[in-house]
Design a protein around this nucleic acid. Structure first.
Length: 304
DNA sequence: CGTTGAACCTGTTTGC
DNA sequence: TGCAAACAGGTTCAAC
């Protein structure tokens, strides 16, 4: 469930006390969610964590002082990072080494100040990878635009050139990085766009409205430190508050905040999608009226 | 190209 | 009350 706002919240928390610390040792439990466990054990000890960045739903712990093998393999590019994806149930937080372990803790990064950066993830849907040089660069290139920074032009191009349903586009990390099911539904509700609309069917006005809705939703959610649906906690163990502001997600059967029509839940792109059947019309706003031809096509589709 | 469904995994919720 | 099935959802992969 951690999406962009939750990951941003965790990254901000870690930034308070992690940068500058050196990793002195690594311990691993279950490793099936780690790309290359041996690379993690090999490359982290001795490295300093320079910074904590958020990249889509990933956190990037930038590491200093590339090992010589990395530098050689990457033609002088000595950038290196630990990528951490929280999946559904991941937690990454520093704790005093004396603190008892929680269940499902699988990674311990011992720091040079007596703390351990611990990764806990009951479902192990998360991902951890040590990457450097060209491999790091290539991995990051797989992802699309940062939703909070994307321009109107680029957003429009990425959406209106595609026939896929808008819900699927919002969730596609190679289109936008960081949007998940909650914020996709919330943004579509705000922009009054049906989740099953095709990207190519959106008007210029609609895509711009959607971009604004998406950015506002994400900014507000970050300001409220994310949504705590089941068990999201930030790095300090505090829950977020944004779930109180949800207008569509998780509100099936409850009245729409705009028009009181009950919110519906359908499956789009294989994901449950919450929307107002009145505000978010399937066909979108009509201009000069739907042509008789198209109306017949729609009627035919319904009878099937 | 787009779309669907399955798989991964475990804690929680729902239904009988 | 108890237990099993369903559900939650980020991501990848196979199949059509």
């Amino acid at each position: 469930m951690p999406e962009l706002p939750e990951v941003e919240t965790v990254a901000r928390g870690l930034r308070q006390s992690i940068p500058g610390r050196r990793i002195v040792a690594v311990r691993l439990g279950k490793t099936d969610f780690i790309d290359d466990p041996a690379a993690v054990e090999m490359n982290l000890p001795g490295r300093r964590i320079e910074s904590v960045e958020r990249f889509g739903k990933f956190m990037l712990l930038r590491l200093s002082g590339a090992a010589s093998a990395d530098a050689a393999a990457s033609n002088g590019d000595d950038s290196a990072a630990l990528l951490v994806h929280l999946g559904m149930t991941g937690h990454l937080a520093p704790q005093a080494a004396a603190e008892p372990n929680q269940k499902h803790t699988h990674v311990w990064l011992e720091l040079d100040d007596g703390r351990e950066l611990r990764y806990t993830d009951p479902r192990r849907f998360g991902r951890i990878a040590y990457l450097a040089g060209a491999a790091l660069r290539d991995e990051l290139l797989r992802f699309g635009a940062e939703p909070l920074e994307i321009s109107s032009e680029e957003f429009s191009m990425r959406v209106r050139s595609r026939k896929t349903r808008i819900k699927a586009l919002l969730l596609d990390q190679s289109v936008l990085r960081g949007v998940g099911n909650i914020y996709a539904d919330e943004s579509l509700w705000r922009a009054k766009i049906h989740p099953a609309r095709r990207g190519s069917s959106l008007s210029v006005e609609e895509v711009e409205s959607l971009r604004r809705a998406l950015q506002e939703t994400l900014r507000h959610a970050i300001a409220m430190r994310g949504s705590s649906i089941t068990n999201f906690l930030d790095a300090a163990g505090e829950p977020g508050e944004y779930q109180r502001r949800h207008r569509a997600y998780g509100r099936e059967g409850k009245p729409c905040y705009r028009c009181r029509t009950p919110i519906r839940r359908i499956i789009v792109a294989g994901r449950s999608s919450h929307f107002c059947p009145n505000c978010q019309a399937k066909t979108g706003p009509k201009k000069a009226g739907t042509s008789p031809r198209k109306r017949r096509r729609i009627a035919k589709r319904k009878t099937r």
